[in-house]
């Protein structure tokens, strides 16, 4: 940031400052959700979403401060990478959490996975009763 900025510099610095503070607040939001929500699924909801948006704001702040065009594609790659990896890891954690029963079923409004899991379990039971080897 330029000290004693005037004109366009001052505007860009002010926008950057707002972006940086908002981006940091997104991390704080994720933590508050992590502390206050009752079970793993709702904590995951709070933990995975705001930080991606917060990182977008911070990267936009970097782009505004650097003021060179070639920086933006690099920052976009960094953000898209985050955008691709966070849902996959959240999916894996959520799946493991469901299988190991880290959830309060009474808090769910829809449970679409339950029927699938039950069907898979009954199919496996039939296979073992018929004497077929379990393939895993």
């Amino acid at each position: 940031m330029t000290p004693d900025a005037t004109g366009v510099d001052a505007v860009i610095d002010a926008v950057t400052a707002v972006f940086l503070v908002l981006g940091a607040l997104m991390s704080l939001t994720a933590t508050i959700g992590l502390l206050r929500f009752p079970d793993l699924m709702s904590r995951m909801h709070a933990a995975t979403k705001p930080q991606v948006l917060g990182l977008f704001l911070l990267l936009a702040g970097i782009g505004l401060q650097m003021r060179q065009w070639w920086v933006w594609p690099v920052l976009a790659v960094a953000w898209i990478f985050q955008l691709l990896t966070v849902p996959v890891s959240a999916h894996m954690v959520g799946r493991a959490g469901y299988r190991t029963k880290h959830l309060h079923p009474e808090l769910l409004s829809v449970d679409e996975l339950e029927a699938v899991v039950r069907r898979a379990a009954s199919e496996q039971e039939e296979q073992t009763e018929a004497g077929a080897p379990k393939d895993r």
Binding site: A30, T31, L40, R43, A47, T48, Q51, G54, S89
Partner: peptide, 12 residues
């Protein structure tokens, strides 16, 4: 899994 989630947030 809660701890994994929280350490992910800390990394962020």
């Amino acid at each position: 899994l809660d701890r994994v989630l929280a350490s992910d947030v800390l990394l962020g």
